[in-house]
Write a protein that binds this DNA or RNA. Sequence first.
DNA 1: TTTGACAGTTCTATTTTAGAACTATAGCCT
DNA 2: AGGCTATAGTTCTAAAATAGAACTGTCAAA
Lengths: 154, 154
Amino acid sequence: MKWDKLDEEPCSLSRTVAVVGDRWTLLILRESFLRVRRFEAFQSSLQITRHLLSERLKKLVRFGILRRVPYSEAPKRYEYILTQKGLDLYPIIMAMVHWGDTHMGDERGRPLLHEHKTCGKQFDPVMVCSECGEPLHAKQVHVHAGPGQRELAG
Amino acid sequence: MKWDKLDEEPCSLSRTVAVVGDRWTLLILRESFLRVRRFEAFQSSLQITRHLLSERLKKLVRFGILRRVPYSEAPKRYEYILTQKGLDLYPIIMAMVHWGDTHMGDERGRPLLHEHKTCGKQFDPVMVCSECGEPLHAKQVHVHAGPGQRELAG
DNA sequence: TTTGACAGTTCTATTTTAGAACTATAGCCT
DNA sequence: AGGCTATAGTTCTAAAATAGAACTGTCAAA
């Protein structure tokens, strides 16, 4: 598989995997959502090698998920801030956190709790249907080809 | 980073990444949700190498996401079916598909459309707060340490 | 003028993945 | 019986990605 062309596949999952489908990228994004913005901060909190961090940040900027914003003129220094496209990854991150909470927990309980400022309560993320508002389950969903389909899956 | 210990990190995202955080695993799961079950079917629809497919399937079985179920006694043959733990990954997959639809689309339109059997309509997945039902946005969420936290993130 | 902070880049050894061929079991056909 | 086919893997080597550590360049502060 030529991973550098995965973002051109006629499959929205593949295209998303092309961007966030490696181990470090998701962890970097987690840090971004926790307000980490600077190279050194990412590096020390993740223990990622500097080389790979540099590469991943470039890739995220290239895909328009992070913006490289100067915060010091001399010496020129930059920080990495989520764009709207990046902020829109939030449901993915939250879905993963919730699955981890549910299925990969240990006896110590959840590492993080989430509070919804809007209602003031501690919550879990729930995925619902945009039309009827009911929670979604795989078996209640029927898939059919859209206009961008090239071939039918197996 | 020792990726084989990522599932013991005090972070639910890391634990989830330990399971689904590589490029092939998510594509394999997509096929599973599309009802693909057999080795040959995964292999031919994904063009993954047989070696890696074998490894990934084993890993998914080990983590309890797929079950290896015999469908022929002689010769012994097995197929791979999502467990409840696996089915619970659906929101992650759907969140990724939706992000891809929104941000990585091309002029041809969506590759797949989703119909909610319950209400009969074509829908998008929306992530909402379990407590108030409002759609979630990163900036409206406050994070604080839970009982399983070991150290504060940067 | 030296030290330290920050944001990277460069280098080599190790690990992972790709790509192809090979193995094993059993049914089916002649 | 002998050979062909289907399915589900395993094994092998070359190529690519990652880890780990050291190095570079810029500027501020002491």
